[in-house]
Design a protein around this nucleic acid. Structure first.
Lengths: 245, 245
DNA sequence: CGGGTCGTTGACCGTGATCAAGTAACGTGG
DNA sequence: CCACGTTACTTGATCACGGTCAACGACCCG
């Protein structure tokens, strides 16, 4: 409703293409409503009937799925300016759960609102299409990590990915980030137990790869971490050359 | 070029919505050219400059990524009627490799061709958007399998997923499929070694869950397999209710 | 017949899970 | 202000799933 500064969504998207007035107003209409959530609050659950997508306005969120016996897999961490719900858009019922990683705020909008964009803004349509496919590429990177990396490499990949993402909207960011997720959640994101996350992080700290101070994390040797996991930044540059007019 | 019967792409997409003439002709234009590949031939490689997407016309293909030390992760198996390259569309250079799992045929088309669809067919645009996001949901299912399932469950999930996909275009299919991938490839798809794939498949066969005969695989107890992995079919039904006009 | 690919089986080992105990930081209420 | 829960992190002992390495058999094709 209220927006004192430029929306995070517009800021994030205009990193990639110039947005005209129509596009900006269409995006603004996605953020007409907002709702706050407190740390660890559920936004929606698997098997909920789902007619909405969300734009993250403030705070970190994450999507996850549970197995019947309680095993949990965190799929993707969501930051301000991200659109939540692409993988669920194809179905009547949600395929994943969303939860607040810390206190934050979301803007819900009905799927239906995409129509107007599809009909009147081919260029913005292409960008949304691109964002969904970029997310696909990122989940694939995570899949690669889970399938073929050991614990230390997975952690390296996870931290590098978060850092690269946060740099888009935070151009003067250094190699230090705030890390509001606990080790249990990190483990759920990487297919590890919180116990082993603790041991491995400690080990990486001793090796001088990273350092911690409270909820702050520093990538002390970013390029060595990148080499460990053959890291590619999927955020700083996208191919928009084929877009319409 | 030549097309004796209806295209697989049109067949697959018209499973979900009625396609008008414009849409059908636009889709047909994606299959103007074709090229054959033999078993294990590369289609394109990571870091290739990439201006094309592909439609699978015949045969199974798969996408994969390699680690510098030779570890390999197969991302996704591709069947006739599937569109190849969504995760790469966002970037100038490919993020994955594509390879033929058996002899087959692909139809390449330039990314640029999506423009005409984005500009003139909002309904088809929405469907392509949906297909990309459905693929995202499927990769997420695989991620869940890799993060939180043991070897037997991963195999169960893998076979169930392939079967559900093949049923879309093959309505009278039973619980038996042709499985042209070898155990090394299956292992690369599931983060296992071919040795352990062999042991686990044998074990599942002894337990009466599946049976094999040459390159044919039968899901002897499909519902028990489904319960093991809390399986959801992502193929038979999609939510298209929010589509434009 | 010889060589290649593919699947099978066994012995051994290591990464990371499991279980358990302990510490530190924090907010709450008495 | 301290007693107390709760949550987060750490560390150690033990164990098992699945990796590694190696050998062998079946099959196909030249």
């Amino acid at each position: 409703m209220t927006s004192d500064k430029k929306s995070c969504l517009v800021e994030k998207l205009s990193h990639y293409i110039e947005l005209d007035e129509l596009a900006e107003s269409q995006l603004a209409s996605l953020e007409e409503h907002e709702r706050t959530y407190h740390r660890h609050q559920e936004v929606y659950s698997e098997t909920d009937e789902l007619k909405y997508l969300y734009v993250v306005k403030r705070g970190w969120f994450y999507s996850y799925t549970d197995m019947p016996d309680g095993r949990r897999q965190i799929i993707r961490v969501l930051h301000p300016g991200d659109i939540v719900g692409f993988p669920d858009i194809a179905f009547e019922y949600a395929t994943s759960n969303i939860r607040a990683a810390e206190d934050g705020c979301l803007c819900p909008f009905p799927k239906q609102k995409l129509d107007a964009i599809f009909e009147k803004s081919p260029r913005l349509t292409a960008l949304l299409f691109l964002m969904a496919n970029r997310e696909l590429a990122c989940v694939i990177d995570t899949l690669r990590a889970m399938g073929r990396m050991d614990a230390r490499e997975r952690l390296a990949y996870f931290f590098l990915d978060l850092t690269a993402r946060l740099r888009i909207t935070n151009k003067d960011m250094t190699d230090t980030i705030r890390m509001p997720m606990n080790q249990h959640e990190i483990g759920d994101a990487l297919g590890l137990t919180h116990t082993y996350v603790s041991k491995t992080i400690r080990e990486m700290e001793n090796a001088g790869l990273i350092s911690r101070k409270g909820a702050t994390l520093t990538l002390a040797q970013e390029t060595r971490l990148e080499d460990m996991v053959d890291f590619s930044d999927r955020y700083s540059r996208l191919d928009t050359s084929w877009f319409p007019s």
